[in-house]
């Protein structure tokens, strides 16, 4: 297997290299990071629905659509990418997805531990420290290869991450920003500025190589040769084109931003007979937090809405029907044209 230890590359190459290697069927571990920031959307996403395109254009932030799943991310040089390109029939590849992530996130967990961060693997595909995520990962089947991509996070621009997303309103954006700060951490946050400064891209990647070697066998260093360059150029022709970038994505009726496994910020709307119900909340391991209910429906008495918000706080999503029954029976609340089934539309998955 080849090792591409490339350091800083252009933002385009930071994505095109693994797409090219996979299509060439060349097994490799690539370690690199982008020289400038960009937004990277998941394969199935519709950019007009998920990314604040005006903001990105104004700020000259380029956008890429990867052939790997997951959501939109803001990427920059403080995130050190690892990209494993491997044939599915390579004997070191586990068959099950859970085992695949467990095995190949091992080197990432170990690298963090070697620099003093007590990281742990959290199924299916997260690396966490004290319940906070510290690596984003995904797998795509590209060409005849599996491509496993992820990052070591030296530092993270929470502000820009929440800014580049298309969101229904600024309140929702604030919720995303706050939840991300609470649930995503970085090497700098964990070690502090002074200790973190002892680790740069080269030293961290050297540890990554040492940790990946026992799993992958010998790694032969290689640079970008003419064959790879030509594939990168060929792919760039269409992966950077408007046709690929703005292709039709998944239709979304709700807005959900996944922060890490078990944590997401949700906004849902439902047009009931009695009017529009709009809710936003955090789903924390299946429990409601920071529930907000708005809309153009009537509720008697007025304070019924804030009472329902309070009643849902901390409750399991499995108990939502019970909470709603209690809300209507114990508090003499009336919501003309809106019944329990309508609330279930916005509060159940």
């Amino acid at each position: 297997m080849y090792l591409y230890n490339l350091g800083k590359v252009s933002w385009q190459e930071s994505q095109l290299i693994y797409h090219a290697l996979a299509r060439m069927g060349r097994e490799a571990l690539a370690l690199l990071s982008p020289a400038s920031p960009y937004v990277c959307a998941g394969y199935h996403q519709g950019l007009d629905q998920e990314v604040d395109l005006d903001f990105c254009q104004t700020r000259h932030i380029p956008i890429f659509r990867r052939e790997v799943g997951g959501g939109t991310v803001y990427l920059d040089g403080n995130q050190l990418f690892f990209q494993l390109i491997i044939h599915p029939d390579n004997p070191v590849v586990p068959l099950s997805k859970d085992s695949f992530y467990r095995k190949f996130l091992g080197p990432v967990v170990n690298t963090y531990r070697r620099i003093g961060i007590q990281a742990e693997f959290k199924p299916v595909n997260d690396v966490i420290v004290n319940a906070r995520k510290i690596s984003g990962t995904g797998v795509g089947e590209i060409g005849d290869c599996l491509v496993f991509v992820g990052n070591l996070i030296l530092d993270f621009n929470y502000e820009m991450m929440s800014r580049v997303l298309k969101v229904p309103d600024e309140k929702f954006r604030d919720k995303v920003h706050k939840t991300m700060e609470e649930n995503l951490t970085t090497i700098r946050r964990e070690l502090g500025e002074t200790r973190a400064s002892a680790w740069d891209e080269a030293s961290l990647n050297n540890i990554m190589i040492e940790e990946f070697k026992p799993l992958l066998g010998s790694l032969t260093p290689r640079g970008i040769d003419s064959e790879l360059q030509s594939k990168i150029d060929e792919l760039g022709g269409w992966m950077l084109s408007g046709d690929w970038l703005y292709r039709k994505g998944r239709k979304i009726s709700d807005r959900e931003v996944r922060i890490r496994a078990g944590i997401k910020v949700v906004e849902r709307m439902h047009k009931a007979t009695g009017g529009l119900i709009r809710t936003s909340y955090e789903d924390r391991e299946g429990r409601f937090a920071n529930v907000s209910i708005t809309g153009d429906f009537f509720c008697y008495p007025d304070e019924g809405v804030s009472r329902l918000e309070s009643m849902l706080e901390g409750k399991s999503k499995d108990d939502v029907h019970q909470v709603l029954t209690q809300f209507y029976s114990a508090h003499e609340v009336e919501t003309p044209g809106i019944g329990i089934d309508d609330w279930l539309v916005v509060f159940r998955d």
Partner: peptide
């Protein structure tokens, strides 16, 4: 076609 689940994009 492609199918995505659990952060795995398959064919």
């Amino acid at each position: 076609a492609k199918v995505e689940s659990g952060k795995w994009l398959g064919k």
